[in-house]
Design a protein around this nucleic acid. Structure first.
Lengths: 341, 341
DNA sequence: CAGATTATGACTTACGTACGTCAAACCAAA
DNA sequence: TTTGGTTTGACGTACGTAAGTCATAATCTG
C-alpha cells in the first residue's frame, strides 16, 4: 500500500537501520554478503529512496555556476532570464550566473581559472573553441569541479557532458525544409552565418550542405556570408547579395543576425516571389517575421529545457549519481507561423 | 545565505510558529492584521515553503486515475506505457490506469460513474464527445473529484482543464507545411481522417482547410476519407482515391491509420513524383516512413509532456493551488527525417 | 464587568532519511 | 588466548513543515 521505507528494508533483510544506510550510501564497512542481502531485500520490496526526505536530511546545497557570453544575442539573454527567474525552482541547489565577453577565449579562460572550487560544485559554460579554454577547463576538473558545456560544445576536452541540440542535425533539418520549400524553383541558396570559428555555426553549415547537395541538387549554394551576429552587417551583406543575384530562392540564417535578415527582405513585400527563409532561434523578432509572412520556418532550441537539463545533469554529476550518455541532448524544434507557442 | 524557514518568519513577524503555520495553510483563527504582518514578513525575507519538508510532513497521497481508450492506437499505448514506467516518478502521488473501449461513450460514462470519490482525488480522461459523458463528468465533479480532459477536449463541460495540443493549430501547421511542399505543383490534396465524430480530428481538419484555402488556393481539397483509424480501411480507401485521381500532390493523415497510408504509397517507389505526405504522431512506423523517405513530415504531441502536464495539473487542482489558465497546453512538434529524437 | 468568544502561544509528535558516536560482536592471525 | 581489525547494531539528533492539544491572552458582547 504505502511505499516501503528503510525500516522495512532493514526488517526484511534482518539487519539494522545503520547497515541499510551504509549500503544505500555506499559507505565502507559492510561485508559483501550483507550488501547482497540488503540489495535483494530492496529489490523484493520495490524500495525507492524518498528523495524529499533524503535531501531534507542531507543539508547540502549544490552550488552551480553558469558562464554565458555577453552581447545582445537574444538566445543568450533568454537563458540568462530563465536562470534568474527560476533560480529558486530547484531544491537544494543555488545557482550563480557570470557573464563574459563574447567570442573572447582569453577572457573565458581567465574566468574559468578564477572559479573557486571551495564555493562551486559544478559549472555550465557556453564554450568558445580554443586551446586556452580547453586547458582552463581541464584544470577546473582537476580541482574537482563538474563541468558541462552548454549550447556550443567543446569535444575532446575534459568537459563531462554537452547540453544542447545536435547542430549537425539542426543544419540537416533546415535543408530538408528549405529544399522542399524551394522545390520546382531551382536557383541559389544563401547561407548567413555568424562566424565559422564558432563550433555550432560550423556544424550547422555542415549538416545543411550535406542534405541540400544530396537531395536537392538543383539548388546552388553560395559561399556563406559571415555577419558576426550583427544585424547591420547582416543586412548590408545580404542586401548586396540579393542585388547581385536575382535568382536567390532560399535563405538559411544559422546564427543570430535575424533582425538584419528581416530588414534586408523588407523590399520584397508580400508577393509570392520572395525567397523562402529558414532561420534559427525563436525570438520576438523572428516570431514577428513568421507572423507577417517574411520567414517560413524557425529552427529552435528551447532555453527552458536547456537550463533544466543542464541543472539536473550537473546535480547528478555533483552527487555522484549515474547519468545517461545522452542526458544533455535537447530536441530540435521546428516552428511555423501556425504552431508558435 | 541559507533559505529562511518558518522559524525565521515567526521571529520576524513577532508571532509563534503556530500562527505562521495557520497563515501558511489558510487555517482559521488568525486576525486579519496578524495575517498581514506575517505575509509581510514572508515577503521581506523572501520565504518559500520547502516543498520537500511539507510533503514529508503531510503524509497525504494524491490518488489520480487515468482513463484511456483501448485499441491498437500507438499514441494511446504510448501514454499507457509512459504511465506504467513513471508511475513511481511523482512524489506523494499514486497513479492508476483504466482502459475503456474506444469510441464508446456509454462505456466511458459508466466508467466515470463507477469512480469511487473516496479512493480517487483526480481523474484525467480521453473524452469521447457525447451528452452522457458530459453528464457523468459533471456528476463526478459534484462528488468532489478533480477532472481534466486529455488529448481530446470536451469544451463546455465541467472538466476543469484540457491537457493536450491545440488541434486547430495542428491542422494549420500541417497545411503550412504541405502547402509549401506542394507549391508549384497545383493539384489535389487528400485528407485521411479517423472519424469526424471525434473532436480532435474535426478540429484538425478545420485548421487545415482554413490555411490551405486561404494561402494555397491552387490546391484542391478532396472530401475527407474516414478510415476509422484502421490501417486496412485506410489502405483500401486511399488506394482507390490514388487510382481515380492521377494528380494528387499531397496527403494529410490526421488520425491514426498511418500504417495504411504507408502501404498505399508503397507503389510509388523512391521517385520524386510521389505526393508530399504529412501525418500525425511519431510512432515506430511513421518514424520508419520518414527515414525511408515515404513521409515528409510528422506533426507530433509528446506523450511524456502530456502525462507530466496532466499529473502536475491534477496535483495543483487537488491540493487547491492556483493553476495557470493555459497550464495544460502542450506544444505542437514538427519532425522531419533529420530532427528525429 | 462578567462571560463568551476568538486569537495566539507553547509544546509535542510525526514524516523518511542522513549521519555521527559508541559499544558489542565477529573474525583472523599471532 | 590474546590482539587488533572489521562488521554490525543501538541510539540520538537533525532537516523544515504539518497538525494536533491545551492553556492563556486578547477582544468582543450584552
Amino acid at each position: 500500500m504505502t511505499r516501503p521505507t528503510i525500516h522495512d528494508v532493514a526488517r526484511a533483510a534482518g539487519v539494522s537501520l545503520s547497515t541499510v544506510d551504509r549500503v544505500l550510501n555506499d559507505r565502507v564497512g559492510v561485508r559483501h554478503a550483507t550488501q547482497i542481502r540488503v540489495a535483494q531485500a530492496m529489490r523484493e520490496l520495490g524500495f525507492e529512496r524518498n528523495a524529499a526526505a533524503a535531501n531534507l536530511a542531507r543539508r547540502r546545497q549544490d552550488r552551480l555556476l553558469f558562464i554565458l557570453p555577453a552581447g545582445s544575442n537574444s538566445f543568450m539573454r533568454g537563458l540568462e532570464r530563465e536562470l534568474a527567474q527560476r533560480s529558486e525552482a530547484w531544491e537544494f541547489t543555488s545557482i550563480a550566473v557570470q557573464i563574459v565577453p563574447a567570442f573572447d577565449d582569453m577572457a573565458l579562460a581567465r574566468t574559468l581559472q578564477a572559479v573557486d572550487p571551495d564555493a562551486t560544485d559544478g559549472v555550465a559554460v557556453v564554450a568558445t573553441d580554443s586551446p586556452v579554454v580547453r586547458a582552463a577547463l581541464a584544470e577546473l576538473r582537476e580541482r574537482g569541479v563538474a563541468v558541462v558545456t552548454l549550447v556550443s560544445d567543446l569535444p575532446s576536452s575534459r568537459r563531462q557532458h554537452f547540453v544542447g541540440i545536435d547542430n549537425v542535425q539542426a543544419g540537416r533539418t533546415a535543408a530538408s525544409l528549405l529544399g522542399r520549400f524551394c522545390r520546382g524553383r531551382s536557383g541559389k541558396i544563401v547561407i548567413v552565418a555568424g562566424s565559422m570559428l564558432v563550433r555550432d555555426h560550423a556544424e550547422r553549415r555542415l549538416g545543411f550542405e550535406q542534405v541540400l547537395r544530396a537531395e536537392f541538387p538543383d539548388q546552388q549554394i553560395l559561399p556563406p556570408l559571415e555577419g558576426r551576429d550583427d544585424r547591420d552587417i547582416v543586412e548590408a551583406e545580404l542586401d548586396r547579395v540579393l542585388r547581385q543575384q536575382p535568382d536567390v530562392t532560399g535563405i538559411y540564417s544559422l546564427g543570430a543576425g535575424t533582425r538584419g535578415v528581416a530588414r534586408a527582405l523588407a523590399g520584397y513585400g508580400a508577393g509570392g516571389s520572395r525567397p523562402s527563409v529558414v532561420v534559427h532561434d525563436l525570438t520576438p523578432h523572428s516570431r514577428q517575421a513568421l507572423l507577417d509572412g517574411s520567414f517560413d520556418a524557425v529552427i529552435h532550441q528551447d532555453p527552458v529545457r536547456e537550463i533544466s537539463a543542464a541543472v539536473s545533469l550537473l546535480q547528478s554529476l555533483v552527487r555522484g549519481q549515474p547519468v545517461d550518455a545522452d542526458a544533455g541532448r535537447i530536441g530540435i524544434e521546428v516552428f511555423l507561423r501556425d504552431n508558435l507557442p
